[in-house]
Amino acid sequence: MRHIFLGLAIWGAIHPMYYFLTWFRAEGWSLGDMVQAWHVNAASSGLVWDLTIAATALSLWIIAEVIRNRRFFHLIAIAATFCIGVSCGLPLYLYLRSTPEGETRSREGQE
């Protein structure tokens, strides 16, 4: 399962980013204009709010587990969620979470 989660995280980073970059190249590099485009109609606004709520729930789950397990590197999944999307952040966190505890601890100690 770990490899599947990693593959989904990579796919979830590349596929949406292709569309974001295509939009930015065509429309200009304004984040405000992109957010405005996301709310062009009720259907797209619904998707934006759906993903915002999912990203918030995922972030709270990650924070709660980081506090409990002291795996601070896992916070990178929050950055991936809000910089790329839930399609990258969720499978990335599941991949990181599925790493055996001893392996994660030894890698965190080296950083």
Rank of each mutant, 00 (worst) to 15 (best):
residue 1 M to R: 13
residue 2 R to F: 08
residue 3 H to N: 14
residue 4 I to C: 03
residue 6 L to A: 13
residue 6 L to C: 07
residue 6 L to P: 04
residue 7 G to S: 03
residue 13 A to K: 01
residue 15 H to Y: 02
residue 19 Y to N: 01
residue 20 F to M: 13
residue 25 R to P: 00
residue 26 A to T: 06
residue 27 E to P: 03
residue 28 G to F: 04
residue 31 L to C: 10
residue 34 M to R: 03
residue 34 M to L: 15
residue 35 V to L: 11
residue 37 A to H: 06
residue 39 H to M: 15
residue 40 V to N: 11
residue 43 A to W: 09
residue 44 S to Q: 11
residue 47 L to I: 15
residue 48 V to N: 08
residue 49 W to T: 04
residue 51 L to D: 03
residue 51 L to T: 00
residue 54 A to S: 10
residue 54 A to E: 09
residue 54 A to C: 12
residue 56 T to A: 11
residue 59 S to L: 06
residue 61 W to P: 11
residue 62 I to G: 03
residue 63 I to R: 02
residue 63 I to Q: 00
residue 64 A to F: 07
residue 68 R to E: 06
residue 68 R to K: 11
residue 68 R to Y: 02
residue 71 R to M: 04
residue 77 A to C: 08
residue 78 I to A: 00
residue 80 A to D: 00
residue 82 F to K: 01
residue 83 C to G: 15
residue 83 C to V: 07
residue 87 S to W: 03
residue 91 P to A: 07
residue 91 P to W: 13
residue 95 Y to Q: 07
residue 95 Y to F: 15
residue 98 S to K: 03
residue 100 P to G: 02
residue 101 E to G: 05
residue 102 G to S: 03
residue 102 G to M: 10
residue 103 E to Q: 05
residue 103 E to I: 06
residue 104 T to G: 04
residue 109 G to S: 13
residue 111 E to A: 15
